[in-house]
């Protein structure tokens, strides 16, 4: 019985896992490339940045907020960090993580301060900071790209290399290792710390959390600070992959990540969401895109399919409640939660 209970508490994750397994099975039959080591490693390489953002966003969603500004914030971090490294005489990886993490946290704290200080809902504030960050960035850079970056930053570092029998190389790059670190750190934060428990509580029932003595300002700072840190680190790793800094390169990526995290079962109202669901959500989006590419389907179909999946995921998770509502409306009218 306890096993079943576990499944019941992770309904969304389990459903997504089943869908994902079926998809992978289907794709492996339809395309012999899909299950190749080369394809799987490039899937991870290409989605490491999204995954780092996703776990950051997960923390914000759990706390009952939302952040639209993180992708643009990552671009801001890239520019400011590039400038800082010049100032610091080149820098290195340690300084790189420190500088980009700290700038990211700073940008996150701007969001947290505005949301908490003015008691304005997070979507409004982060849409505002999204525009402000991007506008300022374009204004000060005049849209110029930076190619002249420190060599440590753009050098390729592999954590795994393998040459297959037919001579093609498959490898995992540094971003994947960093992503794993971010995922584990976030998992520990939300699952095993008092702070994590308070974040869930705050997202679930803010008034009850306040009465229990949870420091609300601290919770906002942790959630948006964590998101900011992840945005900064993701920005750092994205430069390592593409080897240039382009001001509008990340613009628009936020909705893709948000969609993936919501697909993974994080509740927009707060209080619910898991690392597992978050990973599955991002991988679902990634594998859908990958599969469509391999099958030679028009890339325009991708957006449509992701949109459809969100609709199906969200509406089926409500079906049970829906049919119940039809049978016994009184029950829902009187329930508070």
């Amino acid at each position: 019985m306890p096993r079943l209970k576990l499944l019941a508490n992770y309904t969304v994750e389990m459903r997504l896992l089943v869908v994902l397994v079926i998809m992978c099975f289907g794709l492996s039959l339809a395309s012999d490339q899909f299950l190749s080591l080369g394809n799987l490693t490039s899937l991870l390489n290409n989605n490491a940045v999204n995954l780092i953002w996703a776990v950051g966003l997960l923390v914000v969603l759990i706390s009952g907020g939302i952040d639209i500004s993180f992708a643009v914030a990552a671009s801001v971090v890239q520019y400011v960090a590039a400038y800082c490294f010049g100032f610091l005489g080149g820098g290195n990886w340690i300084l790189g993580f420190l500088v980009s993490g700290l700038i990211g946290i700073g940008l996150g704290l701007i969001n947290a301060t505005l949301i908490h200080g003015f008691r304005i809902i997070s979507i409004v504030i982060t849409i505002a900071t999204f525009n402000a960050f991007f506008g300022l960035l374009m204004f000060f850079t005049s849209g110029r790209n930076i190619y002249n970056l420190p060599s440590w930053w753009t050098s390729r570092i592999f954590i795994f290399e393998h040459q297959s029998a037919n001579g093609t190389w498959s490898e995992l790059n540094l971003a994947v290792a960093v992503m794993i670190g971010c995922v584990v750190a976030t998992w520990i934060l939300i699952r095993f710390t008092g702070t994590g428990r308070q974040l869930y509580a705050f997202g679930d029932n803010p008034e009850a959390a306040r009465r229990a003595g949870v420091n609300i300002a601290l919770m906002q700072a942790v959630a948006y600070g964590w998101m900011g840190m992840m945005a900064g680190i993701a920005g750092l790793m994205q430069v390592n992959i593409v080897k240039e800094v382009i001001p509008n390169a990340l613009y628009g990526r936020e909705l893709e990540v948000l969609a993936a995290v919501v697909l993974g079962g994080a509740r927009l109202g707060g209080g619910k969401g898991s690392i597992l669901g978050c990973l599955l959500g991002v991988m679902f989006v990634a594998i859908t895109q990958n599969g469509l590419n391999l099958l030679g389907v028009s890339p325009f179909a991708f957006q449509m399919i992701i949109g459809g999946s969100i609709l199906i995921a969200v509406s089926t998770s409500n079906i049970q409640i829906g049919s119940d509502l039809f049978k016994n409306p009184g029950k829902y009218i009187r329930t508070r939660y």
């Binding site: 869930y200 509580a201 679930d204 029932n205 008034e207 009850a208 959390a209 009465r211 229990a212 509740r267 209080g271 619910k272 508070r336 939660y337």
Partner: peptide
């Protein structure tokens, strides 16, 4: 009166 509990926990 509203119990101040956390529904998803």
């Amino acid at each position: 009166q509203d119990l101040a509990l956390f529904p998803h926990m």
